[in-house]
């Protein structure tokens, strides 16, 4: 599949808000965290944006896993 160049025209805020809504989908929510991160990475989100979307989509299911800088 050819990378959609229009994705680069999307403002980052919209991309993140879309990721948040995406992550809140029950079916997505139950999928493993790695799968969700991998998918968002492929969609062009950076690690920071992925973390941001994960936080906004709801607290990490198991706090123990929430590693990384506070």
């Amino acid at each position: 599949t050819s990378p959609l160049d229009m994705e680069h025209a999307i403002p980052r805020e919209q991309l993140i808000s879309t990721a948040v809504k995406f992550l809140q989908n029950p079916r997505v929510h139950q999928s493993p965290l790695a799968t969700k991160k991998l998918f968002l990475k492929k969609k062009g989100l950076t690690d920071e944006e992925i973390e941001l979307a994960l936080q906004q989509s709801g607290p990490a299911p198991d706090e123990s896993q929430s590693s990384g800088p506070s």
Binding site: I10, Q14, T18, A19, K21, F22, N25, R27, V28, S31, T35, F39, K43
Partner: peptide, 16 residues
């Protein structure tokens, strides 16, 4: 897995 990937793709694009 591919079908899940496709579902993710469509869901994300529909949110956009």
């Amino acid at each position: 897995f591919a079908s899940q990937e496709k579902f993710f793709q469509e869901l994300f694009d529909s949110e956009l």
